[in-house]
Design a protein around this nucleic acid. Structure first.
Lengths: 233, 233, 233, 233
DNA sequence: CATGAATGAGCGTTCATTCAT
DNA sequence: GATGAATGAACGCTCATTCAT
């Protein structure tokens, strides 16, 4: 059973139920779980809430899924898979030099964080609540994502196109910045995803201190208004 | 009731109980709560575990605190206060120019994230579980911390010493990078806090693209070995 | 609906499913119920397990039977009927004197306990879980079985061929001894059913202290090796 | 935590609640569990019923006991221990010859089955529902009880004081007869425990076909009226 | 004949909290 | 200051059963 289908993000008014068509309970339930886990956290969410949000009975949840934990795992796994697909697709259509590849990865990540903002938040907050055997599998995937970033940066450093003394810290900073987007980005805000991606591309290139060259920086629009969600002090 | 006292970070062997001296139950309990909340999350933790970890009875917890929620609030509030003290102290002993001030803020933040790594993690993860009236109070504090960063950056931009088109995104990236330290920093690892701070100062200055000038960058040691904790893909 | 058909005892490998032929769902289901009820007890067994064991869907169970309770009742009723048939057949082909009749009853009972060991165990353990109206019907049958024993013994006592002061206790002891066989008898063990029956005939005759006379005691083989299942201390 | 205390048998009207004195919840709960497990079986009984019967809340049950399974184990273990104590005490005050010892064991067993009729029923029916590690421990005890019987009978056969070709079957018959008492004995019935014991002593001696000798048979009252509970046909 | 989808009631258990001592 | 005993609400989950197809 895959999940993949939904998260149109803008979860549709959060709370709307509106009669699940017979046979489509599985999707309705993972969608509801996404919302509820995001809102209240894995342990703070009750599967009764999930079922209610999906407009189904508690028992229907157990017909479609094998439990709360599996619901979380399905959500996270589907997200990771989507992320990898996004990254691979971006890297496939890019030139081979480290700078281009780094830009592609940033764009893919920003795109994913914005497009699947809710799943990104869940991944950031609830990953630790995965139990075995799901945890092992996803930890491995997570590590290979990290390696994706690190390899590109290391290569850039080796080729002298990136100039940073501490490539690991550079990688961490870039990833942290991109990941944080999910926490504050408001889809009805004033910056479009594409524009946002370019801004973060620019930030990433600064962090690795790319040696100046003519390259694929595209445009740069005017500074916008405000948005929400302050980071932890 | 403030907490402030403890978090020696390296929480003391995690699980050691060893007889609470009469009258010091309050500290023992907040210390225990810190550990347990960090390990399992607010909703995943039970106050029975907290009391057990503190070596006290469940009833003792209610003697010293008014409940689980207040325990969380005390922890978070104490952390924020410490953070503000750290920042203020750093800014007080610094020159007035934006670059110096930004560097001071980064150093204070890195120092805090490393020194109170556990509280930082709790703040990042469990803030959302604060209920009123605690939530309101702490949100305000959090906002004023954000303003601290933003004002410095905005000033630097106005003075043309920072060159960034999107100061808000710069600020977010810097904060995100610093905050993430708590997630991967290992106190017995290979980089000392002071050294780490300088690396992040460097990263922050790159992000705001500070105009070149003579300044207080200190040293830069050799790149180290590995560390843990990959960010969410 | 009667069941009667199956219980090959040695329930066929316990768990083997192997495609139920169309139309034979009813038997497959009672067979499965027999196994599952025997293994886990009526309340400990779930009809999902029964359906799965039978290789059919849960809904098929409700097509063939009206519910869990009816499944149990069918099993027990079929067993009782078989037992009565066995007893009647044995008594029909026997002389009229109490001793002969008692021996015949013992032989029939031992035969039944060995031949339908599983049903015997279920009858012993799960009878109490019968609800009305099944309970009433089967209690009546059970009473008439008791009367069968008692009448023979009472007659023997009256005729002075049995010498026991407490015929009811004698009857209870004999029945208890015979019934217990189902709990320990191992079909692949070292004593054949026929031989076992003779041993119990001997025990029964001793219990009623039959006055010595020439009679149908047959042979007596050598004492065997061990067996399983200790009675409750 | 031991249980041992209660089972006055005649559980007091079955359902009477009457305010549990503070602090005595543990006993009230095991007593209630005894009743409810006996009435409905382990799987048929709900711990809510147990708590209700004890006049306490469901949570109180978990304060005193660690769960349903532990409740069953405590009941069974306490019963077995009591039974062993009864047997040992009986054997200690008896002459060394097999016949005397067999009589003593029968008397002890009948005494126990009558005195702790409810626990005896539970032991007979619910033993199989014990999970590890309780099961292992109690199986061992059960086996040693069986050995107690078998050793005495074997010795009697060796000394030619018992004349039975199949000592194992003799032992099984005697044990089965004694154990069954718990199923039909009515404490307000017409036969006193002591008298009943003598009847079963007589039955047991017949089963082992003791060589005639002067011995400790005591008295023998007149045959009584009826009682309930027919054995499974 | 048989199934896939769904339900409501109830299960054993744990929770944060309170109260009498 | 601190505890042992108790509670009501809610938890994740399984149950026997039903219904539309």
């Amino acid at each position: 059973m895959t999940v993949s289908e939904s998260e149109s993000d803008e979860p549709g008014g959060s709370g709307t139920t509106s009669a699940v068509p017979r046979g489509s309970g599985g999707v309705a339930l993972t969608d509801a779980a996404r919302e509820v886990f995001a809102e209240r956290g894995y342990h703070g969410a009750s599967i009764r809430d999930v079922a209610k949000r999906a407009g189904l009975s508690l028992s229907a949840l157990y017909y479609w899924h094998s439990g709360k934990q599996e619901l979380l795992a399905a959500l996270l796994e589907d997200g990771v898979n989507d992320y990898f697909r996004t990254c691979e697709s971006a890297l496939r259509t890019t030139e081979a030099d480290p700078a281009s590849r780094l830009c592609a990865l940033v764009r893919a990540t920003v795109d994913y964080r914005v497009r699947r903002r809710v799943d990104s938040t869940i991944a950031a907050q609830e990953f630790r609540n995965l139990e075995q055997p799901h945890a092992q599998r996803l930890v491995t995937l997570r590590e290979s994502a990290t390696r994706l970033w690190q390899d590109i940066i290391d290569e850039g450093v080796r080729d002298d196109v990136f100039r940073c003394a501490y490539p690991r810290d550079a990688r961490r900073a870039i990833q942290a910045a991109c990941n944080a987007i999910a926490q504050w980005y408001a889809p009805d805000g004033d910056v479009e995803p594409g524009e946002l991606a370019e801004r973060y591309v620019s930030i990433a290139l600064r962090i690795v201190d790319r040696a100046p060259q003519v390259h694929d920086r595209r445009k740069a629009s005017a500074p916008p208004r405000g948005s929400t969600a302050d980071p932890a002090p």
